[in-house]
Design a binder for these strands. Structure first.
Lengths: 328, 328
DNA sequence: ACTAGCACTACTATTCTACGAGTGCTAATT
DNA sequence: AATTAGCACTCGTAGAATAGTAGTGCTAGT
């Protein structure tokens, strides 16, 4: 257990280091705290022993360890009230009645990314919760046509397909069949249903049924399981701890990997959660702050990704504000 | 006019420097050429005077200037036959009959980006050539619905809109109106037509006609003028001349800017064109190699973007190969 | 016209120095 | 017993000096 003074020191170090990423020395702390630098040094070395602080070399100041940030977030951080200016910027987006909720979310995350200089992410709901609502087919020329798939939650995807020697009429019949038989099925079960319920029927009266079946089969099996929206990836380029190209390369490849980002919503906690460094399961040098949201049938996860040295208080209150606004 | 030997020297320097980005000295050249390093030095200084070579400092070897690359591309470069391996990789994509052409293009550009380590770009045809083919509306819940816009070239976009107190019936009538009156119009003229031909009519029998009109108006005015697809942006991170973060930031912001990329197809030359450094109008440190393509009603521009120190011969022949394959 | 030779230049790598911001420890003070 | 002053020590950084080297331009001779 930490003494009161140790807490104060840890808090000061974390906050100082977040503001300016250079190791913090005992003298700096002793200025704010009413005790000598020697005392601070003693406390610091206890904190280091407790695994909350680290040194960059034998005679350097201290920086917070992953556990140090963790302790700060769990016990020391005070929620920071959002500035009126920040709120205003977001309100102008939220009050736009024209926009659909999903667009509002993306727009406001853009705003947040610009305000904070961190990367933001929206993860849509998973496909096994998405039900097929409708499909549409629009012929473009003799051989190609566009298939549009719409889910009950308003997720839309389209795909260009090519069919040789299949009459438009046959396609339309198949589409009707799908719209009658399969609508309401979870997206990731559609392929199976297609095989057992639609294939036998079209097999009877469509000449090129194999081709037609395959085309539709691909449309559904390629349906992205997860809507992922990453905003402000380039913000990482402005963070001093990501100033070397290899680090950037590694982080970018991770942000480009939807499956990996998906891990953010693995826990099904609805509250705001903070994952620091290795806890994030994304990259040891980033922090992920996330929350789930739900409004009617739009639901998903919001996340802000930045360096471990993140303005935790500010980001948490912003996410809280976002969640509140989305949910009503 | 350059002598035969000067050409040889320039060619050697460019190709050497492309392989390995360190300034090339006279000794290296004299090994390949049958003359002394002193002679080479004299020729080099003529080439420098002609603006084709540069020095990084007084006593360094030479590197090609922008004009040097230009001269190399225009006069010295010999088309490089593609390796069987490279061709094979692309053929597997091209021979996939299932995929629509536009998907084939994107997939093969991915392959090219991986083979070359450069960034690739597809620019779709401009919207003023795109005609409205059809619109579809799918209601999601009481207030929101999805509008899907399809053009004659198979470009699809959708938008989520919200309407208060508008009956589905009224929406459907409006959609029919649009599908009857406006289909066939170039996309960027749709807004105008909407105002003069549709607005007066719905004004008569739809209660919330203002709202409805505005919604559709926005759908069309937001329609992206240009389909832009950038593949392998991260490849820039592997290029030695882009190893500092500021440079990367600047290039990425440019690659993220569709209007800027649009400049690539400003010229209406159908052949392969090479724009080096400042000629690219994108960034002084990149080279853009581009060509237009056309197959039926799918048309657009392909481009490969990399450092000025690009494997010109290889990239040109790849683009040629792509263009050929797409066009038949 | 070419080239051998040489003086010269500027980058690179290494070493040395001095400095300073920090530490840990000990002994004195409260 | 807790705090603090004091001091020796460590390590990183910045700058200067050094030597080496890969290149140049120029001159004079082939």
């Amino acid at each position: 257990m930490l003494t009161d003074r140790q807490c104060k020191i840890l808090k000061l170090i974390v906050e100082k280091y977040i503001k300016d990423p250079i190791p913090v020395g005992s003298k700096t702390i002793s200025k704010t705290l009413k005790c000598s630098s020697a005392t601070v040094r003693n406390e610091m070395s206890s904190l280091e022993e407790a695994g909350l602080l680290e040194k960059t070399h034998t005679s350097s100041g201290r920086i917070p360890s992953e556990e140090g940030y963790r302790y700060y977030v769990d016990h020391l951080m005070e929620p920071k009230k959002m500035t009126g200016e920040d709120m205003l910027k977001l309100q102008t987006v939220f009050h736009n009645q024209q926009l659909a909720l999903s667009d509002v979310i993306v727009k406001s995350l853009q705003v947040i990314s610009d305000m904070t200089n961190y990367t933001t992410v929206v993860l849509g709901s998973t496909s096994h919760e998405n039900l097929l609502k409708q499909i549409e087919v629009v012929p473009i020329d003799e051989v190609s046509m566009i298939v549009i798939v719409i889910t009950d939650r308003g997720h839309v995807e389209h795909k260009n397909i090519r069919l040789q020697d299949v009459s438009l009429d046959e396609v339309k019949k198949t589409v009707n069949l799908i719209n009658n038989l399969i609508v309401g099925t979870p997206i990731d079960e559609v392929s199976t249903k297609l095989e057992y319920e639609v294939k036998p029927i079209i097999g009877k009266y469509v000449k090129q049924h194999e081709q037609l079946y395959n085309a539709f089969y691909h449309v559904f099996s390629d349906f992205t399981n997860q809507e992922v929206n990453v905003v402000g990836k380039n913000k990482f380029l402005t963070q001093p701890e990501f100033s070397n190209v290899e680090k950037i390369q590694s982080v970018f490849s991770k942000l480009d990997n939807p499956e990996l980002l998906h891990r953010i919503e693995e826990d099904d906690d609805n509250n705001i959660k903070v994952y620091i460094g290795s806890e994030s399961k994304i990259d040891n040098d980033v922090t992920v702050i996330k929350t789930r949201f739900k409004n009617g049938n739009t639901e998903g996860t919001l996340a802000i990704i930045g360096p471990k040295r993140m303005e935790y208080d500010r980001v948490v209150s912003m996410l809280e504000y976002m969640k509140e606004n989305i949910e009503r």
